[in-house]
Amino acid sequence: MASHDPEARLSHLQSADGSATFSHAGYTVVGAVNGPIEVQRRDELPEEAVVDVIVRPAAGVGGTRERHLESLLQSTLRQIILINNFPRTLIQVTLQVTVSPENEYVNAKLSQAATNLPILPTLIQTALLALLSAAIPLTATVTAAVLAIVADDGASTIIVDPTAREIQVSRSLHVFAFTSRDELLLNESEGEFTMQEWDNAFATAQRQCCPAPTSDDVDMEGGSQADLKNFTRSTLETKTASDLYWK
């Protein structure tokens, strides 16, 4: 399960205000945040900051799919950034996908990937780390997970962080994002499912994204899944510690 372990680097781009590279579940995304900066006159909002998200795919130029991902990310990040603290400014988040997993079972097309959803958690997580690196004030952090429901002869099983192959044979695919206060911030589901299955997926995602605060020994439970909430915290703790080392 080594490939499932998340990895992150913070503040490694010199020119951007904040940056992060994040790898998880086969995807690697480089994120850069600039802000608050001056905003174009026609986009300016008198009472809040404009959040602009740019997603660039691993190959080719962005198309309608990237616009959709951008609008999802934009409305999500607006909720966690304290946009009212920076009226008439722009906070720009640029996300470049560098690695995306290939499905060796099909002849892949570059331009139109099979589905938009699996990459969404990695994009959200990268954007969050880059925002933290840029020291943009946030109301909460966000944790996201992708789940696939696979039907196995009547019984349906939920797979967290499914592979490209598992996504292809799955019956439905769900992306959930929770704030650090355990509220549902984003949910995108596609495929065929019942509300009961959705409930189960929701509960699994909640367990995944919002682990009980007391369980420090979460790694000891033998779960192969990464605890992204604690991962974000420990990554930043390490970064802060190394930045303050000279004292």
Binding site: L72, S75, T76, R78, Q79, T179, R181, E183, L184, L185, L186, N187, E188, S189, E190, G191, E192, F193, T194, M195, W198, D199, F202
Partner: peptide, 25 residues
């Protein structure tokens, strides 16, 4: 045969949780 859901898209806020989602269904 019974209701099936073919897609859910919920973004931009934290009000809707599992209870409200069922009402909306």
């Amino acid at each position: 045969e019974g209701t099936k859901v073919l897609g859910i898209s919920n973004h931009g806020g934290t009000v809707v949780g599992p209870v409200l989602m069922k009402e909306l269904a």
